[in-house]
């Protein structure tokens, strides 16, 4: 249980950063932390005590295995987050070109 609560704490760290930071790079990092906490949460559900990895090899047939599905899901979600982070970094670089700063309080072409 404590592990799940710590995951939630990590999620809140990300959310806090997302809401309070003004630097584009820090916002991207906060968003990434939030994603990692979710992935950790998901992969923890697949864990079984004293179980081996979920791949059939000549040595470990017959033993209890961890649940492989959350691992596959997490791998997919990591790839998705990689894509989103790359896109966010590209946007941050372009915003830096336009404004000469990473500070979001100085970017004011959208309002209302």
């Amino acid at each position: 249980m404590i592990l799940y609560l710590m995951c939630f704490a990590l999620f809140l760290v990300g959310l806090y950063g997302l809401l309070t930071k003004r630097d584009l790079i820090k916002i991207i990092l906060s968003s990434a932390i939030m994603g990692y906490s979710t992935n950790l949460f998901l992969v923890l559900f697949g864990y079984r005590r004293d179980a081996t990895y979920a791949i059939l090899t000549p040595n470990n047939s017959g033993q209890a295995m961890v649940d492989p599905l959350p691992q596959a899901l997490v791998l997919t979600s990591i790839v998705i987050e990689l894509g989103i982070t790359a896109l966010l970094v590209a946007l941050a670089i372009r915003l830096y070109q336009k404004y000469g700063t990473f500070d979001i309080t100085k970017m004011r072409s959208l309002k209302g």
Binding site: L18, I27, M34, I84, L88, A92, L95, S109, L110
Partner: peptide, 13 residues
């Protein structure tokens, strides 16, 4: 860029 950044952050959340 600004709108897209905002959208991406909200979408990520």
């Amino acid at each position: 860029y600004e709108a897209s950044f905002k959208y991406a952050i909200m979408g990520g959340f």
